[in-house]
Structure formats: structure tokens, C-alpha cells
Design a protein around this nucleic acid. Structure first.
Lengths: 159, 159
DNA sequence: ATCTTTTCCTTGACTCATTCCAGTCTTGAG
DNA sequence: CTCAAGACTGGAATGAGTCAAGGAAAAGAT
């Protein structure tokens, strides 16, 4: 197996997809900024190519994600985001304040939480972990603003 | 502190909320079937009370969840669901095929994956885990239907 | 019991992400 | 080069969820 081809056209071809300008521009956009929403991707693609319909971007993203080239994540309360890191089930840190997303490697080396305590008859194939918190920047720019972080989920009666 | 008052009116009052018919009916609906979407809750409430606007249900759910009486979960690809189990950060099994949701206790006794491997400056306050799989019923009713489970995350070009 | 204040519910319009459809253009194979 | 499958365009539609203004009811005080 050759080293992962870094030429995006080859990546597409190897996945059995046609090489089109929209797809290349989408991959480029995601390489520049991971964890991007559809409209930002569309803006970046239009920046490259001129006019591209929003549907085209949706179609491209669906094609890429069902080919396993991009992964769709959907943090509660915001639109879907796409990223190019696939196949290494990593997880995400999400900022409650600004929505920023950062990658985290698997918590415990091996596939971590993939063993729920009771599977209840489910055949589990993936464990998705989202760590909610406040990112460094939001903490430093507005340190003592108790109004900006209202939905702290579990005010823990006793620690 | 008395044992958790099972009278819904007391539950509301203890949380500092007014006791209204819509709120009681909503709690009743959630007690009957946890993990319910807004429109199903609304249907159940209307079944109890007659005419209730959808907005009223949204308002009730927001009030209840910001008082910590219900918890909102939002599995990727479906509308928001509400449940009454709060305060014991448990997790969820979600069926890729029918969308059924089941509760799972915390994987490792103590707050499990709450320690990401690198926090990257985030102040993490919650780890949300979703186990994706196929529920027992879906596996038995349509065992070998490869078309119904398309989004298996990694279709791996060559095995 | 009555009044007042606060909070809730109704109606209806609106936003936003995403999907569907029908027709036109492009890509890659013969 | 030619052609058909597959992509893209533009417009319209769906569905979840939110916002705003007025009328109605509940909780607590008189």
C-alpha cells in the first residue's frame, strides 16, 4: 500500500469518486480549517471557484462522507460540522461559549468507552464522546461573567 | 431532605416553578415514555388536556430543563429528545436503524471519560457519550438487510 | 374573598439548516 | 470523438425551533 496519496485528486479517485472542482475545493477548505459548517465551506469554495450552489456543497459533503473521506459531527445545538480526520475514532472538545471545536485523541489509548456497562441487546459499533467546556480564549477574554455560561448542566449537589 | 417527592406538583414547586396543567401533563408524558421528541410530548399532552399549543410545550420544556427537571439530548440526525433522568450523568445507546434510545449507566463507575487525554486549555465540565449501534429488535426483524445500515462509519476500501 | 403582580399560554409570522426536483453541464470510459 | 452516468444549478419546500404581542390565569398580599 503506497503512503496516503496527498494529491487530493488521487484521494478522490482512490475512493471511487469523480474528480470535480467542487470536490477539490471542498477538501481544500476542510484542510485549511477543520470542523467547519456547511455555509463556511460553501463560502470558501465560492472563494475558489466563483459561483457554486449550496446544494452542490451539500451533495459533495454527502458524497465525501459516505466515501469515508470526511466525517460529519453534529454537536447539540449547532449545525453540522465536517472534518477530514477519519478512521481514528477521536473525540471532540466543544466550547459552550463560542462553539469552537478541538480534537482529542482517544481517552485511554485503546478504543475507550466502547464498552458500555450494559448493552441492553444493542450491537454497538461506535462510541462518540463530546467533552463540553469553555475554551481557553473564552475563559481569558471574559473571565468573571457569570451570565455568559448559564447552562452548566449538573450543578452537582455535593462534589 | 425528604426522599424525592413523587408528587409532580411538589417537584415543580420545589424547583421554584409554578404548577400548571401543561407542566404536569408534560412530566406525566415523560414519565410514561422517556426519550421523547417534542411533537410526541405535545401529542400526549393534548391527549390529556385537549388543546395545547406547540409553543406552550416548547416553553414548558425549556422551563423544566433550565430548572434541571428534564434533560435535553440531541442525537445527531434527529430532533431533540427529553428525558426525566437528570443529575446522574448517564449515557445513551442509540439505534442507527430505528432511532430508539436506551439509557446506560456511567461506563466505569466514576465519572468515566471526563478526563480527556489532552484538554487543550478547555475547562471541561461534562463528557457526553453516545453509543451507536443496532437495537435488538431491529437486528431480529431485519437481520441481513445491508441497505438499512448504510452509515457504518468506516466501510474500509480493502478488508 | 378580592386584588395585583407575575408568569404563562395562544396565535402567527419568521429564521435557519437541510432536502427535493427537474433540467443542464461535466467527467471519464469506449 | 462520443455518450451515458453522474454532478451541478436554481428554485421551491419541509421541518425544527424561535420571537413577539396580547389575553388569561396563578400565587401571594390586602
Amino acid at each position: 500500500m503506497p503512503p496516503p496519496p496527498s494529491d487530493p485528486s488521487d484521494v478522490l479517485r482512490d475512493a471511487g469518486l469523480r474528480v470535480t472542482a467542487a470536490r477539490l475545493a471542498t477538501l481544500r477548505a476542510l484542510a485549511e480549517s477543520p470542523h467547519t459548517a456547511v455555509d463556511a465551506i460553501a463560502a470558501s469554495v465560492r472563494d475558489d471557484l466563483g459561483t457554486v450552489s449550496t446544494q452542490a456543497v451539500y451533495d459533495v459533503l454527502r458524497a465525501l462522507s459516505s466515501a469515508g473521506l470526511v466525517r460529519r459531527i453534529e454537536p447539540a445545538g449547532s449545525a453540522a460540522l465536517y472534518e477530514t480526520r477519519t478512521g481514528d475514532n477521536h473525540h471532540h472538545l466543544v466550547c459552550r461559549s463560542c462553539g469552537a471545536v478541538a480534537d482529542v485523541d482517544c481517552a485511554v489509548g485503546e478504543i475507550p468507552c466502547l464498552e458500555p456497562s450494559q448493552t441492553q441487546g444493542y450491537e454497538v459499533d461506535e462510541a462518540e464522546v463530546v467533552y463540553w467546556g469553555i475554551c481557553a480564549q473564552c475563559r481569558s477574554t471574559s473571565p468573571p461573567d457569570p451570565d455568559l455560561t448559564p447552562p452548566t448542566p449538573n450543578p452537582r449537589s455535593t462534589p
